[in-house]
């Protein structure tokens, strides 16, 4: 977070989210403003309460962990109506950007998450817009 000192505008946004994460309260508002500026209304973003265990929710089958410049799993199948949450575990920043622009996160720092509710069945290819070699798919079934 050295950047906060050097780059004031970026610092204001990222620092705000990070502080929010430390306080572990009222996170979703600030996070959503930062991460979902162009996303549909069904999108939310938040800092998970437990930064150390971002993969804990994977048992529900609706989480994607961004780790070592990969989306895991790179093909996730969920029933329609599921909210999928991506969490960045890398020190570098990542984004989640649907090929057809259905969903789009802002820049996610380590520990930050982005969520999107899939209301329509289909196959959604997405990538990290910062590292476009990172590609993956969410398959939404009826």
């Amino acid at each position: 977070m050295d950047m906060n000192k050097k780059f004031t505008r970026a610092g204001a946004v990222i620092g705000g989210v990070a502080l929010c994460g430390l306080l572990l309260s009222a996170c979703s508002g600030g996070g959503a403003a930062q991460a979902a500026d162009t996303a549909p209304a069904s999108t939310t973003a938040s800092v998970p309460a437990d930064l150390g265990m971002p993969a804990a929710a994977s048992s529900s089958g609706s989480s994607v962990l961004i780790d070592k410049y990969m989306f895991g799993p790179d093909k996730l199948t969920v029933p329609v109506g599921t909210t999928v949450t991506w969490t960045n575990n890398d020190a570098d920043q990542h984004t989640v950007l649907a090929k057809d622009d259905t969903f789009r996160s802002g820049s996610l720092a380590k520990g930050q998450s982005f969520s999107f509710k899939f209301d329509r069945a289909g196959s959604y290819d997405y990538r990290c817009s910062i590292h476009p070699f990172m590609v993956a798919t969410v398959v939404v079934t009826q």
């Binding site: 050097k6 780059f7 004031t8 505008r9 970026a10 610092g11 920043q93 820049s107 910062i130």
Partner: peptide, 11 residues
């Protein structure tokens, strides 16, 4: 830049 922020472009 790394993340396209206005501050990074300005720098």
């Amino acid at each position: 830049t790394h993340l396209s922020t206005p501050a990074q472009f300005d720098q």
